[in-house]
Design a binder for these strands. Structure first.
Lengths: 147, 147
DNA sequence: CTCGGTGCAAATGCTTTGCAATGTC
DNA sequence: GACATTGCAAAGCATTTGCACCGAG
């Protein structure tokens, strides 16, 4: 994960918007996101930062995550729960999710054919896609083995 | 929409669980769901019922919607917002959604090929699918025509 | 120096819960 | 009659907001 490039993406985005300022908090949140693995929620990210001695408020974490989503550095999902989940999107291919209802595990997968069908449906309906998310809920292999 | 059949499905489900009782409220919520068109949230359903003079509490609406989801009469979605959205699932084919970020319109579509790919991915990962939801966010034809 | 951003705590809005009353089995 | 279910209002939670202070441009 190229931290430099991610910082540059954010910097460029902020500048392109004219009124957005490059604050240390924003870069601190970005760094925490880059260091994260898999999916996480705002709360978890906040505590990880606090624990490391980085001073931020929850409000800033939420605001910044939305900002990072706007410039494509972070993806935001909402599965079945009442919590939004995020993951770093930097340099990652588009992918979809198998979500285990037993253990909560999330398995990712990529499929070109799926993307293609998606595009076909969209052009058929004159719909301009921006992002997409396929969520399959069920039971993962580990959990179906259990009695 | 066959009201009788839906009632029977619920009755059978309640009996199958042993301890679940067939209360008039549960059937009232089911009726309100059957009369609904497209997607709705718990709040809207609640007010529709109250307006019609049906006595229910919000808590019961929420509980019953979850129950109806468990027995497959209702589908529950969570798109980008912070509200859960429901729709009747009785006698409807599996379908997916194009969601317009401008006007909030939801366009449904069905695709056999998509289902097939989904199944292939699942068996590849030894994952037993239960339900799924593909959400494509973007701009609908009406909104892209606007200046 | 200006105005956008931050932190805090309080507010919001959806959903769940605790408990007495109610109605099913 | 036993006990699941209801209704109400209050509690919970994730997220947002209002406002005084701070700091980037």
């Amino acid at each position: 994960m190229d931290v430099e490039a991610a910082h540059e993406t954010l910097t460029r985005y902020l500048r392109s918007k004219g009124k957005l300022r490059a604050t240390s908090e924003r870069f601190a949140v970005l760094d925490a996101v880059l260091q994260s693995q898999g999916h996480f929620d705002a709360e978890a990210l906040y505590y990880r930062m606090i624990t490391k001695g980085i001073k931020v408020s929850k409000a800033t974490v939420y605001n910044t995550l939305d900002l990072l989503q706007d410039c494509g550095l972070v993806s935001k999902y909402r599965f079945a729960e009442n919590t939004s989940r995020y993951e770093k999107a930097f340099g990652r291919p588009r992918h979809h999710h198998l979500i285990c209802l037993e253990c909560g595990d999330i398995i990712e997968f990529v499929s070109d054919r799926l993307e293609k069908i998606q595009d076909e449906v969209c052009s058929e309906k004159n719909f301009s896609p921006q992002s997409s998310s396929l969520q399959v809920f069920g039971t993962c292999s580990k959990c179906s083995k259990k009695p």
